[in-house]
Computed example of a mutant assay.
Amino acid sequence: MRVRALFIRIFRQFARDRRTLALLIAAPLLVLSLMYLVFNGDTYQPKLGTVELPEALVQRFAAQDAEVFAYSTPEAAEAALQARDIDAYLSLRGGSPVIRLEGSDPARNRAVMLLVSETLASAPSDMAFTSPDTTVSAASAAPITEYLHGGVGMTTFDSLGPVLIGVFAFFFVFLIAGVSFLKERTSGTLERLLATPLRRWEIVAGYILGFGLFTGIQAVLIAGYSIQVLGLMLAGSIWYVLLITLLLSITALSFGTFLSAFANTEFQMIQFIPLVIVPQVFFSGLFDLEAMSPWLRWLAYLMPLKYGADAMRSVMIRGEGWSAIQFNIYILIGLSLLFMAANVLALRKHRKI
């Protein structure tokens, strides 16, 4: 009887908590659906540029399910490579093929190299690269490999590391800030503050500054440890890395405190993780967005992590500066201000002042 009574109590508790019950059913289905859409997308098609190659060879590349772009000069191909319009371009130098890779994504590098090697190996014996001094059969030609960014020693961790820094910074700040702000509310501290002459925006600003100090420390620790201890590639300025990590943390802080207004317990706050964090991980850049279905890619532009990860890769892998990351920086600042304003409005449900 006692076991039966306990069973009935737990059953009624779940039955009354409709949000927990809905999440228990919907969250696994949502995550599985996202995984299906992400991993079951289209096969990535390498984007290859060509410079003054035989037309027959260009057609063979196009027949291999690759996007081929013909350029009249190496300078035009180099500009397209720097703009990331193509993954690599193939040209001739002294009668030998030279493949120049954009280099920031090892998976795309491998896809391009596989495409080039298979296409050249299957070329007819009469197809050749010619120059004033030499004639080399395409089938026997060994391409010279060059990199715009990265290099032969670049690892998968170097490529994914900038994204992982953003993911961990965002996740832990979101969770800790949300739970901490929730405790302030459930303990009565926030209610007492709302009874003082302090305005809602002043309360939000004070909490953001207070938590922000520790998120800044966390940003320095995560970035410094990843680069100095783990040896993560850093081609640009460490100060830009710290700035991006800090802005991601502030965005997560303001977002977490906002969502905590809709939770009554720490468990309910944790329930937001599969709905908020997991989708952002899928669209942050850990998985190639161009391999997803086109109608699904637009979701990435709703995710703060996408902007932070793009900026981190631009600095850490490509060594780019302010002009390349300023748009992402402004987006993160705008999202932080938006969530802060939403947090001010959310405080109205507790008490009007």
Rank of each mutant, 00 (worst) to 15 (best):
L275A: 15
F267P: 00
S254E: 04
Y330K: 06
F255R: 06
I277C: 02
P294E: 10
I277E: 05
N264F: 00
Q326W: 12
L345G: 05
L338N: 03
A311P: 00
A324E: 03
I333D: 03
Q326L: 07
M292L: 13
I329L: 13
I325W: 01
L248M: 15
Q271R: 04
I250P: 00
S249A: 15
V315P: 02
G256S: 09
I325C: 02
I325K: 01
W295M: 10
W298D: 11
F339C: 08
G334N: 11
V281L: 15
G256V: 09
N264P: 00
P304R: 10
K352W: 05
F258D: 05
Q326H: 07
L305R: 02
S323Q: 14
L337I: 14
S314R: 12
F258S: 03
F255S: 13
L299F: 15
L332S: 06
W322H: 05
R297Q: 15
I273S: 10
A311N: 04
L338S: 11
Y301I: 05
S260R: 06
L259S: 01
M292A: 09
F255W: 10
L296S: 08
D310F: 02
A324L: 01
R313Q: 14
N328F: 02
A309R: 06
R348Y: 14
M316I: 05
I273C: 01
P294T: 10
G256E: 07
Y301V: 07
P279W: 12
K349M: 07
L289R: 12
P294G: 06
K306I: 00
F258T: 07
T257E: 03
F272I: 08
R313Y: 05
S336M: 11
E266W: 01
L345I: 10
R348T: 07
M340E: 11
G285P: 11
S284H: 09
M316P: 05
L248V: 14
S284Q: 08
K349Q: 15
L248I: 15
R313E: 11
L338V: 09
I270A: 11
L296H: 03
S260A: 15
A300G: 04
L299N: 02
R348F: 11
G308K: 04
R318E: 14
A291P: 02
E290S: 13
E266K: 02
M312I: 06
L286W: 03
M292G: 09
F287N: 09
